[in-house]
Computed example of a mutant assay.
Amino acid sequence: MTDTFTDTILNMTDTAATPEDYTGEDGLLYCGKCRQPKEAYFPEGKTLFGRDRHPRECDCQRAARKEREAAEKQRSHLETVERLKRRGFTDPAMREWTFANDNGKCPQMMKAKSYVECWEQISGGNYGLLLWGQVGTGKSYLAGCIANALMEQEIPVCMTNFALILNDLAASFKDRNEYISRLCSFPLLILDDFGMERGTEYGLEQVYNVIDSRYRSKKPLIVTTNLTLEELQHPEDTAHARIYDRLLEMCCPVCVTGENFWKATAQAKMERLKTLLNGKEICL
């Protein structure tokens, strides 16, 4: 045991030399590249297992170590972001909804960037967003940009919709509370296409339970919806009223007014197809 321990210590205090290294006038080993010592004497003439010196990083070794550490940190970061996006997005296509891929045609995108930049205050103050507007104006994309940007900062986000939530709740009757608690554990929850789910008594009750639980968690919520602000402020019945009241209490309404993305995409595809067919008239 003692010999093994001694060998370990001796290996730790031994300095590996390369062919370019040399011994300086002070008797220490120097790096042949940066000309900095790769050894240092113990203070006050002390020794350890008969040795009077210990390894020291030269500039080359320090630079190499920092490069390795940076590479390892980047690898760990990418793995974390990948894990967060697998867990946080219900559709892999959402990973492409980023500020870098934005076409610049949504005037409210600057608000989304500011939301991310002020996340510390946003999170602490529990400030949510209610993104409303016409179909195809980029509400979901805007929310996805926020989600991607935060996950790139290693902040967990869940972006889902009530159609999936209601299916999950129906499939896990015994674990409903645990499921809702998991949704509320995310620093940011994004509910996409709100209002598209079936308005059954059971469905509305579960919608309220999720939103009310998020409210009580005191964490931000972002909701996208095709409902108008008028519809949200003047609901048709009591069941919808208590849901909408909670949302308007939690989230600041933002009208998204970008051009219809779906129509623009369809038109662009049509033009590309016509080009490929050399202008031949076809029935589409």
Rank of each mutant, 00 (worst) to 15 (best):
M1N: 09
D3M: 13
F5L: 06
T6K: 14
N11Q: 15
M12S: 14
M12D: 14
D14K: 15
A17Q: 09
T18E: 14
P19Q: 03
Y22T: 08
T23D: 00
L28Q: 07
L29T: 01
C31Q: 00
G32A: 00
K38I: 02
Y41Q: 05
E44G: 14
G45N: 02
K46L: 12
T47E: 11
F49N: 13
D52W: 00
R53Y: 14
H54V: 10
H54D: 02
P55F: 03
R56F: 12
R56W: 12
E57S: 04
R62W: 08
R62M: 11
R68G: 04
K73H: 00
Q74C: 02
Q74V: 00
H77G: 00
E79K: 01
T80Q: 04
E82L: 05
E82Q: 07
L84G: 04
T90N: 06
D91T: 02
A93P: 11
M94F: 06
R95N: 06
R95C: 03
T98I: 12
T98N: 14
F99D: 12
F99E: 09
N101Q: 10
D102A: 09
D102G: 07
D102E: 08
M109D: 10
M110T: 06
A112H: 11
K113R: 15
S114Q: 12
E117L: 00
E117A: 03
Q121C: 07
S123H: 13
G124T: 00
N126V: 02
Y127L: 13
G128P: 13
W132C: 00
W132F: 06
G133K: 06
V135M: 05
G136T: 08
G136Y: 11
G138P: 11
L142H: 01
V157Y: 05
V157K: 06
T160H: 05
I165M: 02
I165E: 00
L166F: 10
D168L: 11
L169D: 13
S172K: 12
S172C: 11
F173R: 05
K174P: 11
D175W: 08
R176F: 06
S181L: 09
S181M: 10
L183R: 14
L183G: 12
L183D: 14
C184A: 15
I190E: 03
R198A: 10
G199N: 11
G199C: 12
G199W: 13
E201C: 03
G203I: 06
L204T: 01
V207S: 14
D212I: 03
S213W: 07
R214I: 13
R214Y: 13
Y215T: 07
R216E: 15
S217V: 08
L221M: 12
V223G: 02
V223Y: 03
V223S: 01
T224G: 07
L227N: 02
L229A: 12
E230I: 09
P235M: 02
H240Y: 15
H240Q: 14
A241D: 11
Y244E: 05
R246F: 01
L247K: 07
M250K: 02
C251G: 05
C252M: 13
P253T: 02
T257M: 06
N260S: 11
K263N: 09
K263Y: 07
A264S: 10
T265V: 03
T265Y: 04
Q267C: 07
E271Q: 10
E271N: 05
E271F: 04
K274Y: 15
T275V: 06
L276N: 01
